[in-house]
Design a protein around this nucleic acid. Structure first.
Lengths: 155, 155
DNA sequence: CACGATTCAATCGCATGCAATCAAAAAAAG
DNA sequence: CTTTTTTTGATTGCATGCGATTGAATCGTG
């Protein structure tokens, strides 16, 4: 069991770079699926949040995605320009903007159903094989755990 | 063993989002360490590549990091403006630009030695505990494998 | 009620990412 | 040796991310 000293700054030793590279690779892999639908990857994520419940305030979307208004406001304006979301000031509290889906977006929901399965294939897995799905689930949980440790809730 | 059908579009089911969120969380975690040194995270990565061998052409840097000249050219100009790298057209082949480190950058190399250890702590691990380092290594390898599957070499 | 603190979205500035295009240089074809 | 193709980096345009600031609305407290 020889202990070989390793340069701690070597790129291929960095978890951060592995994450950075994998994240960009996955985002790129979504491109061919989303671009024909007129969606970017972050826009797709916003729709996923809204599919789970509407309407959502900009703050709620930001909490779900870890993005701030500086990123979300222009992104939402583009989604609005695409006819996929509506933005409306809350009458009760004029500070908040409630974002909801259009009919067009709800129709997109059907089209998007197949996207995750296609992505599993791109990941090199078989969507029919439980083992492959379990591998993905394990990796996903490890990443969520890492994110939680880096961003402790404001408790 | 009840099989509960799960909405495949649920955000917390997406490996892509786990990656996306974790990558941004890690990049943010580097901020406090790099900002005092006048570095951004991608600039830090470029320096890591150069620490492993100089000079490097823009193409070589791009291959190592998975970035193209559209990203690297302005980034390298900023690193040059910071006095950390030199850029010089190759006399043999006027197409290539060779990027090398300045004395200032080599001095930075010393300062950066401790960064990876500090990051392990932020990840919630103990740099002295081999088990924690092994966990990080496993996650890193899983991510590298995913990236490779998504970007098969042009063979 | 007054008023300072807080919340919320928008705006601004800067630094990526990345596709598409360009121009120059070099290599390959003929 | 000339033409064509390829390689390499730069440039442009667009869409994020994100810190910092702003401005409006609301809340908390006295």
């Amino acid at each position: 069991m020889a202990r070989v000293p390793v340069d701690p700054l070597r790129l291929d030793q960095q978890l951060c770079f592995a994450l950075y590279a994998a994240s960009r690779a996955v985002t790129r892999a979504y491109g061919p699926l989303l671009e024909p639908l007129g969606l970017t990857y972050p826009q797709y994520l916003v729709l996923l949040v809204l599919f789970e419940g509407e309407p959502r305030s900009v703050r709620e979307l930001g909490e779900a995605l870890g993005l701030d208004s500086g990123t979300l406001t222009p992104l939402l304006k583009r989604l609005e320009a695409s006819g996929l979301v509506k933005r409306k000031r809350d009458a009760e509290d004029e500070r908040v903007v409630r974002v909801s889906l259009t009919r067009k977006a709800m129709a997109l929901h059907e089209t998007l159903q197949d996207v995750p399965r296609q992505m599993v294939c791109k990941f090199g897995g078989d969507p029919e094989r439980p083992g492959d799905l379990a591998d993905i689930a394990r990796l996903r949980e490890a990443l969520h755990a890492l994110t939680r440790r880096l961003e402790p809730p404001p408790g």
